[in-house]
Amino acid sequence: ITGDVSAANKDAIRKQMDAAASKGDVETYRKLKAKLKGIR
């Protein structure tokens, strides 16, 4: 179950990262990237 949750989280975070990148929001992008590392 835990694996599914983190996989879903990663997917959601990647989508947020894409949105931040397209807006040029480097700050948010970095925060999300750090979150991704924390999940692993």
Rank of each mutant, 00 (worst) to 15 (best):
Ala21Tyr: 14
Ala8Tyr: 10
Leu36Met: 04
Arg14Asn: 03
Asp4Glu: 10
Asp18Pro: 00
Ser22Tyr: 06
Gly38Asp: 07
Lys37Arg: 13
Thr2Ser: 12
Asp18Lys: 15
Ser22Arg: 14
Val5Phe: 11
Glu27His: 05
Val26Asp: 07
Ala34Glu: 06
Arg40Lys: 09
Leu32Trp: 03
Lys15Phe: 06
Lys33Asp: 01
Met17Ile: 03
Lys23Arg: 14
Leu36Trp: 03
Lys35Ser: 06
Thr2Leu: 09
Ala21Gly: 03
Val26His: 11
Lys33Trp: 12
Ile13Gln: 02
Gln16Thr: 02
Arg40Glu: 13
Lys31Ser: 03
Val26Glu: 07
Leu36Asn: 01
Ala12Gly: 06
Lys23Leu: 07
Arg40Ser: 13
Ala12His: 08
Ile1Gly: 09
Lys33Met: 14
Leu32Gly: 01
Val5Cys: 15
Gly3Leu: 10
Arg30Asn: 07
Asn9His: 13
Arg30Val: 03
Tyr29Asn: 00
Lys10Leu: 15
Lys35Trp: 11
Asn9Asp: 14
Lys10Asp: 08
Arg14Ser: 04
Thr28Ser: 06
Thr2Tyr: 13
Tyr29Asp: 00
Gly38Asn: 12
Thr2Ala: 11
Arg30Leu: 13
Asp18Gly: 05
Asp18Ser: 11
Ala19Gln: 07
Asp4His: 13
Asp4Ala: 12
Asp4Trp: 05
Lys33Ile: 06
Lys10Glu: 14
Glu27Ala: 06
Glu27Gln: 05
Gly3Cys: 15
Leu36Tyr: 05
Ile13Thr: 03
Lys10Met: 15
Tyr29Leu: 07
Met17Trp: 01
Ala34Ile: 06
Arg14Gly: 02
Ala12Tyr: 10
Asp18Phe: 15
Thr2Met: 10
Arg14Lys: 07
Gly38Leu: 12
Ala20Met: 02
Ala20Thr: 02
Arg40Thr: 12
Lys15Pro: 01
Gln16Cys: 09
Lys33Cys: 15
Asp25Lys: 00
Lys23Thr: 07
Lys31Thr: 04
Arg30Tyr: 06
Arg30Ile: 06
Asp18Asn: 11
Lys15Glu: 06
Lys10Pro: 10
Ala7Met: 13
Thr2Arg: 12
Gly24Phe: 04
Glu27Gly: 02
Lys37Tyr: 07
Gln16Glu: 08
Arg40His: 11
Ile39Met: 13
Ile39Asp: 04
Ser6Leu: 13
Lys15Asn: 04
Ala20Lys: 02
Asp4Tyr: 06
Met17Gln: 01
Lys37Met: 13
Ala34Tyr: 04
Gln16Ser: 04
Val26Asn: 07
Ala21Ile: 14
Arg40Pro: 07
Asp25Asn: 01
Asn9Lys: 13
Ala7Trp: 12
Thr28Gly: 04
Arg40Leu: 14
Lys15Ile: 08
Gly24Pro: 00
Asp11Asn: 09
Ser22Ile: 09
Leu36Asp: 00
Ala7Pro: 09
Lys37Thr: 07
Gln16Phe: 06
Ile1Lys: 09
Gln16Val: 03
Ser22Phe: 07
Lys23Ala: 13
Arg40Cys: 15
Ile13Arg: 00
Gly3Ser: 10
Ile13His: 02
Ala19Tyr: 11
Gly24Ile: 03
Arg14Tyr: 08
Val26Pro: 03
Arg30Lys: 07
Ile13Tyr: 04
Leu32His: 00
Gln16Gly: 04
Tyr29Lys: 00
Lys35Asn: 01
Ser22Pro: 01
Ala12Asp: 13
Arg30Thr: 04
Thr2Pro: 10
Gly3Lys: 10
Lys15Gly: 04
Ala21Gln: 07
Lys10His: 13
Ala20Gly: 02
Lys33Asn: 03
Lys31Leu: 04
Ile1Phe: 13
Arg14Thr: 05
Asn9Trp: 15
Gly38Phe: 10
Lys10Gly: 08
Ala21Val: 06
Val26Met: 15
Ile13Pro: 01
Thr28Phe: 05
Ala7Leu: 11
Ala19Thr: 06
Gln16Ile: 04
Arg14Val: 05
Leu32Ile: 01
Thr2Phe: 12
Ala8Ile: 11
Ala12Lys: 07
Lys31Arg: 10
Thr28Tyr: 06
Gly38Pro: 03
Tyr29Ser: 00
Ile1Ala: 09
Gly24Trp: 04
Ile39His: 06
Lys23Glu: 06
Thr28Lys: 06
Glu27Lys: 07
